[in-house]
């Protein structure tokens, strides 16, 4: 159907230089479109004029942003876009993921609220794992390099990303930080996100999976209060488990709440202070490594 007048013999796109359907005046500027059935309309006003002309007399009614022209409408047009708001981040994350895969790097994105103990947990894990795996860390904080300095003190390379006013790491930041790490190849990359249980959930960094750290001091209902983060994580590490007795922490309820928002989430308890529970965490890491690259994981076992 002709999108100009509704008659049934137009072609789309409309390229009707002087055909019998519509006519132009000799100047190619002002259009009285003549119809066979002898009604006249489409007197385009002199303001905005969105037909596209060329020397051959092409009148392209589809040459405007809408790709069409509709009777009675102004030059304002609705155009279909259908693009994901996070599409750019997702593309960069896919590039990161491809690079990690090419470099045989298993990347984990650690997320938690501030003070859950991500860095303390990493410092302990570094010390225990650095003999088995090449390890690198990307640290995200709004300000300071304190966390990267703590990691580097263990002998593991670390790059600090300061997000400034930003509340999360994004895929571009991680791609650039990874570049600066000058990773040889193989091993495990821990990306410690900005302490925040909301925003980092939305931003894929290219990681193999997210690990959410929840400390016993935060209360059992964090998964219900911040469901997006627990829904997007594969493992929940419940840290500061050594404090559970004095806090009357209900472990079973915490896990039940987490599985309400993510039936598949795995859960482990650890204490970064005492080292309790870390062997199970390392076994979990080795299983992930085995899933990515069986030969390397077998060698590390």
């Amino acid at each position: 159907m002709c999108t100009v007048c509704g008659c049934n013999d137009a072609k789309t796109p409309i390229e009707y230089a002087h055909d019998e359907h519509h006519e132009h005046d000799q100047f190619g500027r002002h259009h009285h479109h003549e119809h066979r059935q002898d009604h006249r309309h489409h007197n385009h006003d002199g303001g905005y004029h969105d037909h596209v002309h060329d020397d051959a007399g092409l009148l392209d009614c589809g040459g405007n942003p809408a790709g069409q022209q509709i009777a009675g409408m102004s030059s304002d047009r609705i155009i279909q876009v259908e693009r994901d708001i996070l599409g750019k981040n997702d593309r960069l994350a896919a590039e990161n993921r491809a690079r990690f895969r090419a470099d045989d790097v298993l990347a984990f994105n650690l997320v938690s609220s501030p003070g859950a103990g991500k860095t303390s947990l990493l410092v302990r894990a570094m010390s225990d794992l650095m003999d088995s795996f090449m390890i690198g860390v990307i640290e995200g904080d709004q300000h300071t390099s304190h966390d990267a300095e703590r990691i580097r003190a263990t002998g593991v390379p670390a790059i600090q990303v300061n997000t400034g006013k930003g509340c999360h790491l994004d895929a571009a930041m991680v791609g650039e930080a990874y570049e600066r790490l000058r990773w040889p190849s193989g091993g495990i990359l821990f990306i410690e996100n900005v302490g925040n249980l909301v925003c980092p959930a939305a931003f894929d960094l290219g990681e193999a999976c997210k690990i959410v750290v929840l400390s016993t001091t935060e209360g059992e209902d964090k998964p219900l209060k911040y469901p997006d983060m627990f829904a997007s994580s594969s493992l929940m590490l419940i840290n500061k488990i050594d404090l559970a007795p004095v806090l009357d922490f209900d472990l079973a309820r915490t896990i039940e709440y987490a599985r309400r928002v993510n039936p598949k989430i795995e859960a482990l308890t650890v204490s970064a202070r005492t080292g309790e529970g870390f062997p199970a965490f390392y076994a979990w890491i080795r299983r992930q490594a085995a899933g990515v690259k069986p030969a390397a994981a077998a060698a590390a076992e």
């Binding site: 905005y48 942003p65 304002d76 047009r77 609705i78 876009v81 259908e82 829904a231």
Partner: peptide, 16 residues
Amino acid sequence: QVTGGEEMRVKTLEVA
């Protein structure tokens, strides 16, 4: 298992 309602998309634009 969530199957829909996670989208954040620019659907259309009205332009001039």
